[in-house]
């Protein structure tokens, strides 16, 4: 591989230091994960004591009704909160990036709040809010309350990611679309949306992961029958840790890796199309 223009290879001691640092960082990142995966196959009930290879914990995971139910709950909540927060978060990002309106700066600042304030504070707020609302409107805690809470913090994350993408987009492109007879909606549909799609997809992925992940807020606003997987795992730890937790974690890890791979793959498909276009010479016409 040739060096990219202007980039020089480090030499001597610098080179070895950089290399050592790289391995240190990798070790720091991945050693716990490797350990987790290894011990999920351990035959000993005590986490951290190797007891020979076994698939029992995965079998437990597959047959445990509680775990299955919690996983189902988690996925339902994650899907619902992701869909809603992607729509609302993208709309908020568009409003803040493309329009000036009264109260814009206040809205901008408020939008960051859920990212900044501690989870516990948010959880208590939500609990209080739902307690009041439940009295007034008479609903019980469960899917609705958890999903609403997750939407509340996910909107912020989605809008931050989408805004970053929008800020990098030339707003003349929308003007060009409008000049070429597109209505506002058509300009959004055919020009803006395809161009911010990587941001929207990234935001969706982040929202999905955060929702799957959340323990603190969920634990405060959950109701009977709506235990999510992380809350369930948290509960298991209190009863005593078994490698079942490892197995559950490994499955969650694989699921999130699959999600990331999926989003990368969709972007690769676009890149691949560009490469194909590049290879089509000027002599080749249309299909």
């Amino acid at each position: 591989m040739t060096a990219v223009g202007g980039v020089t290879q480090p030499r001597g001691a610098t080179r070895w230091l950089l290399r050592a640092n790289t391995w240190l960082v990798y070790g720091f990142f991945y050693a716990p994960i490797v350990l987790l995966v290894v011990f999920s196959f351990s035959g000993n009930r005590n986490v951290g004591v190797w007891g020979g290879f076994t698939l029992d914990w995965y079998r437990d995971f597959a047959s445990d009704g509680n775990v299955q139910g919690a996983l189902r709950n988690s996925i339902q909540i994650a899907v619902a909160s992701t869909v809603v927060s992607v729509v609302l978060g993208t709309a908020a990002a568009l409003a803040l990036e493309r329009f000036t309106f009264r109260g814009r700066q206040v809205f901008d600042a408020l939008l960051y709040l859920p990212i900044i304030i501690p989870d516990v504070t948010m959880a208590v707020m939500m609990l209080l809010f739902f307690a009041q609302a439940a009295e007034l409107l008479g609903f019980s805690k469960g899917f609705g309350t958890i999903t609403l809470s997750h939407i509340a913090f996910n909107i912020s994350f989605v809008s931050v990611v989408v805004r970053a993408r929008l800020a990098g987009m030339d707003d003349r492109l929308e003007e060009a679309a409008r000049d070429l007879y597109a209505t506002r909606w058509q300009a959004f549909r055919h020009v803006t949306l395809p161009l911010i799609m990587p941001g929207v997809a990234g935001g969706a992925l982040l929202a999905f992961t955060l929702s799957l992940d959340d323990v603190v807020i969920t634990q405060f606003v959950t109701g009977p029958g709506w235990t999510t997987l992380p809350v369930y795992v948290f509960g298991l730890i209190r009863k005593g840790v078994t490698p079942l937790i490892n197995a559950v974690s490994v499955v969650m890890l694989l699921a999130s890796m699959a999600l990331v791979a999926l989003s990368l793959a969709t972007q690769r498909v676009r890149g691949g199309q560009d490469a194909i276009d590049a290879r089509v010479g000027p002599d080749q016409g249309l299909p």
Partner: peptide, 24 residues
Amino acid sequence: LPPNKRPVNTVFQNYALFPHMNVL
């Protein structure tokens, strides 16, 4: 009148071509 309702078209500075579409 909004731009999409006017019988004029613009060649923009730096062209503003749609990067996600081919020339056609």
